[in-house]
Design a protein around this nucleic acid. Structure first.
Length: 284
DNA sequence: GGGGCTCGGGAAATAAGAGT
DNA sequence: ACTCTTATTTCCCGAGCCCC
């Protein structure tokens, strides 16, 4: 199997600026939209299918489905929580736009010709109905105001692995966090209200790479577990991304990514999830 | 002035209502 | 019954504000 493609797909798709606000402005990233997290989930699901033979087998046999914004119920505290991405057992929905490929097209996911060919060769994975969860992933982004976002990011992620394990004991719990590494960022809404005129964007300044690394540091404090008896995430992935949100190029920041611990890089997230899936669900 | 708590803006999703 | 419009709900995360 080749190396992962997801980060490039995320950057390329976001760069297209597919979010339109109520003033008619097009944004590459908008905090009030969930397009970026859906894009990330799609890319991760694609990479997982590419990387895990058992997942492909289960998909081909129609044993599993995927879900985006899937509701989980934590029985211990009886609260519900929506997870960004889940892989679950169950009846696939039989709708035209319900395959991973169809969903990606609908979302405007930007693939290269080579990636599209790979997607075409994969077995069809369909959106599934609510059922036994095998794997659940929560995706978060931190694009600006890094310092202020840290406590909230941490709390939201910490509550999500609890919800995953509260719903299904042996489900794989994962987190993916995108952190912006540019020194300026055009923030939609209050900092840039109304219709944007050309050249009139207001930018937030970031002290980089310090602020991005501070968020990384906080994310490294998230509980991670190596076996089911412990509490924590089974896998965490962090991607450093360059996004000024002004229409300019969006890229993966390899220099800052190199400062991320190898165990939480995007590639490691995929590898770890693929491995966990293969070992945990070999007998279904 | 740096760090962190928390409120609420606003897009998307969903539900409800209205018209054909 | 089906489509189109409008109201309601959900939920993500930016940033105001308070504290040290």
């Amino acid at each position: 199997m080749s190396t992962s493609l997801g980060e490039q797909i995320i950057a390329r798709t976001m760069q297209a600026g597919l979010v339109t606000d109520r003033h008619g402005n097009h944004w590459q990233y908008h905090s009030r939209s969930d397009h970026h997290s859906k894009t990330a989930c799609w890319a991760i699901m694609f990479d997982l299918l590419r990387s895990c033979h058992l997942l492909r087998k289960h998909a081909a046999e129609g044993k599993i489905g995927f879900g985006i914004n899937h509701e989980l119920r934590d029985f211990r505290v009886n609260r519900k929580k929506n997870l960004d991405l889940v892989v679950c057992v169950g009846q696939p929905l039989n709708e035209p736009k319900s395959s991973l490929a169809g969903y990606g097209a609908e979302m405007g996911i930007k693939l290269t010709a080579a990636e599209q060919r790979e997607l075409d060769l994969l077995p069809e994975l369909r959106r599934g109905t609510v059922s036994n969860v095998h794997l659940a992933l929560e995706a978060k982004a931190c694009m600006t105001e890094h310092g202020k976002a840290r406590p909230r990011l941490y709390d939201e992620l910490a509550s999500s692995f609890q919800a995953i394990h509260g719903d299904t004991n042996n489900a794989i719990a994962a987190a993916f966090v995108m952190i912006n590494t540019t020194e300026k960022f055009a923030s939609p809404s209050s900092r840039n209200p109304g219709r944007i005129r050309k050249g009139s964007l207001v930018f937030n300044a970031h002290k980089q790479p310090e602020v991005a690394l501070k968020v990384l540091e906080k994310m490294m404090e998230l509980p991670r577990r190596s076996d089911e008896k412990q509490a924590g995430f089974d896998a965490v992935g962090i991607s450093m991304i360059d996004c000024q949100n002004d229409g300019s190029r969006i890229t993966i920041n390899d220099a800052v990514n190199a400062q991320v611990s190898p165990i939480v890089r995007y590639d490691a997230l995929i590898q770890r999830l693929a491995h966990l899936y293969a070992t945990k669900f070999s007998s279904i």
